[in-house]
Amino acid sequence: MNSIPLSIISRLLFPLQLTLSIILLFRGHNLPGGGFIGGLLAASAFALVGFANGSARMKTFLLFAPSVWIGTGMLLALLAGLMPVLMGEAFFKGLWHYGIIPTIVAGDVKPGTPMLFDIGVYLLVVGIASHLVLLFESKGGD
């Protein structure tokens, strides 16, 4: 599958897909989407790069090992649950904070622990999907 056109297309598509996935992630709270779907889309972007250019390229695109994505995602999700505990609130209570992060995408992005949680999910899903793709890709040739 190492054809030149596919390679070019995948690299062209990559930023598009990634942006789209992040939009899906952030708008999930209001419209269909969310961390899981966004994560899958992002992973498919990485996977496409992988299929087109080989797993080495995919790994460089990922920046970190998939396990780092997974672990960080899990930690972020846990953190979203633990932050309210530190504030003396119930575990996983949604805490909202305006002001720390400027509202870039107008009112659609709401900084708070649920958002943090969703980002955790997103990272984790990216990690998992790329992990699996790399795994099956490396073992798939036999």
Binding site: A77, L78, G94, V121
Partner: peptide, 28 residues
């Protein structure tokens, strides 16, 4: 109150975040 319009998503990340927590752990 949970600052979201997509109720399903709000359930997933807020009302029943613990389920999602478990879910992503299963995936991991």
């Amino acid at each position: 109150v949970a600052k979201g319009n997509n109720v399903v998503n709000v359930i997933l990340v807020d009302f029943r975040a613990l389920d999602t927590m478990g879910e992503i752990i299963v995936l991991a």
